[in-house]
Design a protein around this nucleic acid. Structure first.
Lengths: 122, 122
DNA sequence: CTCTATGCAAAAACTTTGCAGGGAT
DNA sequence: ATCCCTGCAAAGTTTTTGCATAGAG
């Protein structure tokens, strides 16, 4: 997964702010919120969010809201779903393949909300 | 689907504000945001949100964030999933049954994000 | 009485926008 | 010269909280 390759096919100029964001997301194995990564960012939050919007428009990243009301950002290296526990707010990546017959739809992300095993046990 | 039955089994007192919220959600065939229904509510928004929180804690309703950053509330009469178009923000209820093998998880809602056929055609 | 629910106003949390300056081509 | 990117500050949007009052059992 190479940043230049990701960006070259899209209508995106690769600035240093953008490179930083993509590098952070690529090297993470889980979705991240702005708060998760702000300490690693040298840019202003406005720049961060503007670039995130751009990336989403160009389908470079995807995002979803979690239980904590924050938006989580991710580059999907391999297609997977997300489980969000509405009790402890933990996000888990689910690599089980789901067979959806929604053939006319483009599916970018699947989010499953519920209660995780740990919280069910309590 | 009867409001008294829904509430009696739970730790919830049925006030008139709560009855109003439940009636609106039960009679709708799609998830609704606060904005969608505020004109039908006689209560303050604080009361609305406090009761929504209570309903969610007691698993009477579920909610999810849509593409427009708003939270949508729903009483599921029959188990189904939701497709959210990240282009036009439309929410569609999907009644196709998805087989998930997450046996140790309690699954309350499935949200599929992507592009709907209409937007793909453009 | 006691406990929970409500309204109002203010605050909080996260994200977006306006504007002016900077950089790249 | 033009076009897009950026930082800063301010505003925006939705949801939550504090506090005093009202209501139910």
């Amino acid at each position: 997964m190479n940043i230049e390759n990701i960006v070259n096919t899209k209508n995106i100029k690769l600035t240093s702010a953008r490179k930083t964001i993509l590098e952070i997301l690529i090297s993470s194995n889980k979705p991240l919120s702005y708060e998760d990564i702000k300490s690693k960012l040298s840019m202003d939050k406005a720049t961060f969010y503007r670039n995130i919007t751009k990336f989403e428009e160009e389908n470079v990243i995807n995002s979803f809201e979690s239980n904590d009301k924050k938006r989580y950002f991710e580059i999907q290296k391999t297609k997977h779903s997300h489980f969000i526990c509405t009790s402890c707010s933990k996000i888990e990546c689910i690599h089980e393949k789901l067979d959806l017959k929604l053939s006319k739809y483009q599916i970018d992300n699947i989010i499953i909300k519920g209660i995780c095993p740990k919280c069910l046990d309590k």
